[in-house]
Design a protein around this nucleic acid. Structure first.
Length: 202
DNA sequence: CGAATGATCGGCT
DNA sequence: GCCGATCATTCGA
């Protein structure tokens, strides 16, 4: 049960960080209650040079600036005007790499998740935490947590001793990034095989 | 299946 | 500075 150190996120290869995040436990204490889930789906976005990334081609705006900061903080942004998506900023200062957390398997605080996810009634409904825009609801995370330090005591990732071996990891092209041309085909979406808490295989 | 929903970006006045 | 197109999705029919 050890919190991942900043050094975990600051490594240069965002694809490696994304793979290693699978099976780790994402914990939130937003609102007081401890709520957590195992990461079962994540995508790597490799900053400059990755056309699918918000910060591709050196794009630097107020919104993307957080991705250029030193690894170990959260990047939360609003998608479709409705959904808060949670990313983990990786790599060194000046490198715009990030990992999008796409799905969780609930671990602790399921009662709290059910309260927050009004559309869901049953604790085994995949719509509780399986999806990038809804896992943030379950954890109480929103854009006000942009830039939150992941080594602090509000939101963090810890190693719960769960091991996901490489043959349990399924790599595939990323979702919804068809506009990214050749980068759309890169298999940088990682899922835990056969987990009902990920979106169905393609 | 399709509407909802709003911050952000870029191009124009 | 402002306006409209865009968007890494979800939920109720």
């Amino acid at each position: 049960m050890s919190k991942l150190p900043a050094a975990f996120y600051r490594r240069p290869d965002v694809v490696v960080v994304a793979r290693e995040l699978l099976g780790k436990k994402l914990v939130s204490r937003v609102g007081g209650a401890r709520v957590s889930g195992y990461i079962v789906e994540a995508e790597a976005y490799a900053g400059r040079g990755d056309k699918a990334c918000h910060a591709h081609n050196q794009r630097f705006t107020k919104r993307t600036s957080v991705m250029y900061e030193t690894g170990g903080i959260a990047y939360v942004y609003l998608c479709y005007g409705v959904h808060h998506l949670l990313n983990v900023v990786t790599n060194a200062d000046g490198m715009a790499d990030a990992v999008l957390i796409r799905a969780l398997e609930p671990a602790e605080g399921i009662e709290t998740m059910l309260e927050r996810r009004k559309a869901v009634r049953r604790p085994d409904d995949p719509r509780l935490t399986a999806g990038p825009g809804i896992l943030t609801q379950a954890l109480g995370v929103s854009t006000q947590h942009n830039r939150e330090n992941l080594t602090g005591d509000l939101i963090w990732v810890e190693d719960a001793g769960k091991v996901v071996s490489s043959d349990e990891i399924q790599a595939s092209p990323r979702v919804g990034v068809g506009y990214a041309e050749e980068d759309a085909l890169k298999p940088w979406r990682f899922r835990v095989k056969d987990s009902k808490w990920t979106s169905p295989a393609k």
